Amino acid sequence: MVASAAAALAVVTLPAGVANADVGQISGLAGKCVDIAGANSANGTAVQLYDCNGTGAQQWNNTGSQLQALGKCLDVAGGGTANGTVVQIWDCNGTGAQSWVVSGANDIVNTQANKCLDVSGNNSANGTRLQIWECTGGPNQKWNAPPGGGNPPPNPPPSGNFVVSEAQFNQMFPGRNGFYSYSGLIAALNAYPAFAKTGSDVTRKQEAAAFLANVSHETGGLVHVVEQNQANYPHYCDWGQPYGCPAGQAAYYGRGPIQLSWNFNYKAAGDALGLPLLTNPWLVQNDASVAWRTGIWYWMTQNGPGTMTPHDAMVNNRGFGETIRSINGSLECNGRNPAQVQSRVNNYNRFTGILGVSPGGNLYC
Results as ranks from 00 to 15, higher is better:
Val86Ser: 14
Val87Tyr: 03
Gln88Met: 02
Ile89Thr: 03
Ile89Asn: 06
Trp90His: 08
Trp90Gln: 11
Cys92Val: 12
Asn93Cys: 13
Gly96Leu: 09
Ala97Gln: 07
Gln98Tyr: 09
Ser99Cys: 02
Ser99Lys: 00
Ala105Thr: 07
Asn106Ser: 11
Ile108Cys: 06
Ile108Leu: 12
Val109Arg: 04
Asn110Arg: 01
Asn114Val: 05
Lys115Ile: 01
Cys116Gly: 10
Leu117Gln: 04
Leu117Ala: 14
Leu117Asn: 09
Ser120Tyr: 10
Ser120Pro: 00
Asn122Asp: 09
Asn122Glu: 06
Asn122Ile: 01
Asn122Leu: 02
Ala125Met: 08
Gly127Tyr: 05
Gly127Ser: 08
Thr128Tyr: 01
Thr128Phe: 01
Leu130Arg: 10
Gln131Glu: 13
Trp133Ser: 03
Trp133Asn: 07
Trp133Gln: 14
Glu134Tyr: 02
Cys135Gln: 02
Thr136Val: 00
Gly138Pro: 02
Gly138Ile: 00
Pro139Asn: 06
Asn140Trp: 04
Gln141Glu: 11
Lys142Phe: 02
Gly148Val: 06
Gly148Trp: 01
Asn151Ala: 15
Asn151Phe: 11
Asn151Asp: 13
Asn155Met: 04
Pro156Ile: 04
Pro157Lys: 00
Pro157Val: 07
Pro158Lys: 05
Pro158Gly: 08
Gly160Asn: 03
Gly160Val: 01
Phe162Lys: 02
Phe162Gly: 07
Phe162Met: 03
Val163Tyr: 12
Val164Asp: 10
Val164Tyr: 09
Ser165Ala: 10
Ser165Phe: 04
Glu166Cys: 05
Ala167Ile: 11
Gln168Trp: 04
Phe169Ile: 12
Gln171Leu: 12
Gln171Asn: 06
Gln171Cys: 09
Phe173Met: 12
Pro174Asp: 10
Pro174Ile: 09
Pro174Tyr: 11
Gly175Val: 10
Gly175Glu: 14
Gly178Ile: 09
Gly178Asp: 15
Phe179Pro: 00
Tyr180Gly: 09
Tyr180Gln: 12
Tyr180Asp: 14
Ser181Leu: 06
Ser181Tyr: 04
Leu185Pro: 01
Ala187Ile: 04
Tyr192Ile: 06
Pro193Asp: 00
Phe195Leu: 12
Ala196Arg: 03
Lys197Asp: 00
Gly199Glu: 08
Asp201Ser: 15
Asp201Lys: 13
Val202Tyr: 11
Thr203Asp: 12
Thr203Ser: 15
Thr203Cys: 08
Arg204Val: 04
Lys205His: 03
Lys205Ala: 07
Ala209Glu: 10
Ala209Arg: 13
Leu212Thr: 06
Ala213Asn: 12
Asn214Val: 11
Asn214Cys: 05
Asn214Tyr: 09
Val215Tyr: 01
His217Cys: 09
Glu218Gly: 04
Thr219Leu: 15
Val223Lys: 15
His224Ala: 15
His224Tyr: 15
His224Asp: 15
Val225Lys: 02
Val226Cys: 15
Gln228Ile: 13
Asn229Lys: 08
Asn229Val: 05
Gln230Ser: 11
Gln230Arg: 12
Gln230Ile: 02
Ala231Thr: 13
Ala231Arg: 13
Ala231Ser: 14
